[in-house]
């Protein structure tokens, strides 16, 4: 695997995590929902698409649609009991929900039959889409393009949403439930829809991930993934879509490049893994302490202009 292929690999990971950080940013940055269980969507999408393709024998695209739907439904379901909660309760509830989802995949091996598969063993041999038509040596670039298209779709769609009346209500909810309630908006329903939409796209990221790495197990979907995505959102700038992608790129580049540190520094790979996690944790703390707006500030000025226009009318 040459350097170019490795860069393509990093690009794919940036794309997949970029979708995750865009969707988390949509929940937190736009709606103010502190989701500490984002990895649940990722896991459900990955397993959903895998099972559809491998057990159901459907096409990759059907698998992705399945991942999209499962993620969306889970977003709605999780909002039902928790929709009216304050942010701290919400954070705990989502953290717990993600852990339950993971436990489900650890304990319920029957979802994909056979000895030593599924459950804690994971599922291997997930087919890569169109691998019989695309030559192997350029396949990784094809997949990079595929991921890039989905990242672009997610970005454009969420960007579009945030500028619609729907998106503006979400932003109002972020600043507190009282104002939108006073305007007669059903806050609960808006929160649920926000979770559903972003959950669907996060599920999509899970599907893309599963068909790329071709092996998934519950260990891919531990709570730590959620915090890596959080690091991406806070570094990039809360409430800004381009920031979310930039954050994903920065954290992923850091994450991928430090992997080779062990070739230059006398450190074993287990310790290195911990050191990388320490760095991610410190990164979150430092950004929160000194740099809360992140890399790209949220664009708020356009509202001022709009208000001016309204007052002139």
């Amino acid at each position: 695997m040459g350097i170019v292929n490795y860069l393509a690999h990093i690009g794919i990971m940036i794309g997949i995590y970029g979708i995750l950080s865009l969707t988390l940013n949509f929940q937190y940055g736009f709606t103010g929902l502190v989701n500490f269980g984002h990895v649940a969507f990722f896991a459900l999408g990955a397993y959903g698409s895998t099972l559809l393709v491998m057990s159901g024998g459907t096409h990759f695209l059907v698998g992705l649609i399945g991942a999209f739907i499962i993620g969306g439904i889970f977003g709605l379901i999780i909002s039902l009991p928790t929709g009216n909660l304050k942010e701290d309760y919400w954070a705990i509830a989502t953290l717990a929900a993600a852990e339950i989802v993971r436990l489900f995949f650890v304990n319920e091996g029957w979802i994909y039959g056979g000895p030593y598969v599924a459950g804690p063993f994971g599922i291997r041999g997930i087919p890569s889409p169109w691998s019989n038509v695309i030559p192997t040596d350029v396949y990784i670039f094809f997949y990079l393009g595929l991921v890039a298209i989905f990242l672009l779709i997610t970005y454009l769609f969420l960007n579009f949403l945030s500028n619609t009346p729907f998106g503006r209500v979400l932003k109002a909810i972020r600043e507190g439930d009282d104002l939108p309630k006073a305007l007669g908006k059903n806050v609960f329903s808006f929160k649920a829809r926000s979770m559903g939409i972003s959950g669907a796209f996060a599920g999509l990221a899970g599907g893309l991930f599963a068909h790329y790495v071709s092996f998934i197990s519950p260990y891919n979907f531990q709570a730590i993934e959620t915090f890596i995505v959080w690091a991406m959102v806070v570094v990039g700038g809360i409430g800004n879509n381009r920031g979310a992608i930039a954050g994903a790129a920065i954290v992923q580049l850091f994450y991928s490049s430090t992997r080779f540190l062990k070739d230059y520094v006398p450190i074993d790979s287990k310790t290195l893994a911990s050191v990388r996690m320490i760095a991610i944790g410190l990164l979150i703390v430092l950004v929160m302490l000194f740099w809360q707006e992140g890399l790209i500030k949220e664009k708020k000025s356009e509202y001022k202009n709009k208000l001016k226009r309204v007052s002139h009318d």
Partner: peptide, 11 residues
């Protein structure tokens, strides 16, 4: 909360 999460991850 987010900060405390970063702290927990690092520790």
């Amino acid at each position: 909360m987010i900060t405390s999460f970063g702290v927990s991850l690092a520790l």
